[in-house]
Each structure stands twice: as structure tokens, then as C-alpha cells.
């Protein structure tokens, strides 16, 4: 029993320093991009441009922040692509996503280091990030591209933005309110034994089997 208590509060490394640096670089640049982008997206939100130094300043810096975000996303993909790979059991998870949303565990396969929802979010953000980068270039250097390319870029940039913001709403909600402990995990890099066992049992088991914890 005593051992159990100790075990339960033991901390497990979930994210390395590098993973956290990359994550927060992406998070900060994304936040800046989202707020400055929204300022230019809607005149009713143009006031947000003033927070960041006015319309011209925002127009100048937004693409550079986009470069930072793209680099962070590439680094993130390099370190996580393997854990984010979708396997057949993830299909099962996604089919039963409603049980996850309603906090029932029926039909949900045990999650590895990331559950299928996290994986989907990762790919949604990566894919929309790629589209945002590709469509952002003609918006940054309009004189280098044809009219049709620029028009298409505007459309793609907006649609990819909406997809990414949709994803980020879910991500921020899950990471802060919905799953206590996950914000701390991304901040300190550690979770408790019980947290790991509850949310990512397969990952936890693997670490135990490998004798890493």
C-alpha cells in the first residue's frame, strides 16, 4: 500500500526540454499570428492590431512570425511524426470519439503516448500550417505571383486559418480546462504516475516494461 502511494505521486517525464521549447515556440508564434491575422481578417477586430503596434507593424511582422511558426512546426514534426503515426486502433478510437467526449470509456482503445484525437489534431495543425505557409508566400510577395495565384492564396489562407483556429480552440480547451495536469505536463515536462496511467495507459505500460520508470 505504501509503495502504491509513492508510485502514484511519482513523476514521469512526458516531454523533454527540446519538445517543450519547440511546442512553446509554435504556441507563441501561433498566438501572435492568430491575433494579428484576425485583426486583418475583420475590421471589427482591427483594434487588436493596435495592441501589437498598429496595422503597418502587424503587416510587416506577421509573415516573419509565420516563418518562426513554420520552422517550429517542422521541428515538431521531426520529433513527433513517429508517435503521431495513425495505427488501426486509432480508427477504433475515432469511431468511438463520442464516448471520449461524453467521458464514457466504452469502446475506446487504450491510448499510447498520444491518443487518436491528439494525433488528428497534430496532423490538422501540420497540414493547415503547410497550407498557410504555401499560401502566405504569394501574399507576402504579391508582385512575384500571378493574379490567379494571389486570389487562390487569399482563399486558401483563410480556409486553412479557420481550420487551424478550430483545432486550436479544441487544443487549448483540452490542455487547460478539460484535462487537468496536461498544461503542467507541457510546462514542467512531467506528469504523475496516475495521470499517465489514466490518460495514456499503453504508453505508461511501455515505459514500465522498458524499465524507464
Amino acid at each position: 500500500m505504501k509503495r502504491g502511494v509513492k508510485r502514484k505521486n511519482k513523476e514521469i517525464v512526458r516531454y523533454t526540454l527540446w519538445e517543450r521549447v519547440v511546442h512553446w515556440s509554435a504556441a507563441l508564434s501561433f498566438t501572435y499570428l492568430m491575433l494579428t491575422g484576425l485583426a486583418l481578417y475583420s475590421p471589427r477586430l482591427f483594434w487588436m492590431a493596435s495592441i501589437f503596434g498598429g496595422g503597418t507593424t502587424v503587416r510587416v511582422w506577421h509573415p516573419f512570425a509565420g516563418v518562426v511558426f513554420s520552422v517550429a512546426l517542422v521541428l515538431m514534426s521531426l520529433s513527433w511524426a513517429r508517435c503521431m503515426w495513425l495505427y488501426p486502433e486509432d480508427r477504433q478510437w475515432l469511431l468511438n470519439i463520442w464516448s471520449y467526449i461524453t467521458h464514457k470509456e466504452e469502446g475506446l482503445p487504450e491510448a499510447g503516448r498520444f491518443n487518436a484525437g491528439q494525433k488528428m489534431l497534430f496532423w490538422l495543425m501540420s497540414f493547415s500550417g503547410l497550407l498557410l505557409l504555401l499560401s502566405g508566400i504569394p501574399l507576402w510577395f504579391p508582385h512575384k505571383f500571378s493574379w490567379d495565384v494571389r486570389l487562390a492564396s487569399i482563399l486558401v489562407h483563410e480556409i486553412a486559418t479557420l481550420a487551424a483556429i478550430g483545432g486550436i480552440i479544441v487544443h487549448v480547451y483540452m490542455g487547460t480546462l478539460a484535462v487537468p495536469g496536461s498544461l503542467g505536463a507541457m510546462a514542467k515536462g512531467k506528469v504523475t504516475d496516475l495521470w499517465a496511467k489514466t490518460h495514456h495507459p499503453r504508453w505508461y505500460r511501455r515505459l514500465r516494461q522498458k524499465g524507464l520508470i
Binding site: 487504450e110 483556429i165 480552440i169 480546462l177 478539460a178 504523475t192 495521470w195 496511467k197 489514466t198 505508461y204
Partner: peptide
């Protein structure tokens, strides 16, 4: 999206850590 997230929190609350639930983890 924001409204739905907040509504979800009010309805279902945060995910709790389950100790007694049998999840088949060997540690458990």
C-alpha cells in the same frame, strides 16, 4: 467553437484521474 468548449466543461467537467477503474495496466 469557444461556446461549445465552455458548454462541454459545464456539462462534463474536467477529466478525472481514475484509480479504482480497472484499465488493465500491469501497474494497476
Amino acid at each position: 467553437g469557444v461556446a461549445l468548449a465552455l458548454l462541454h466543461y459545464l456539462k462534463f467537467g474536467p477529466m478525472e484521474l481514475v484509480e479504482e477503474k480497472r484499465r488493465g495496466a500491469p501497474g494497476e
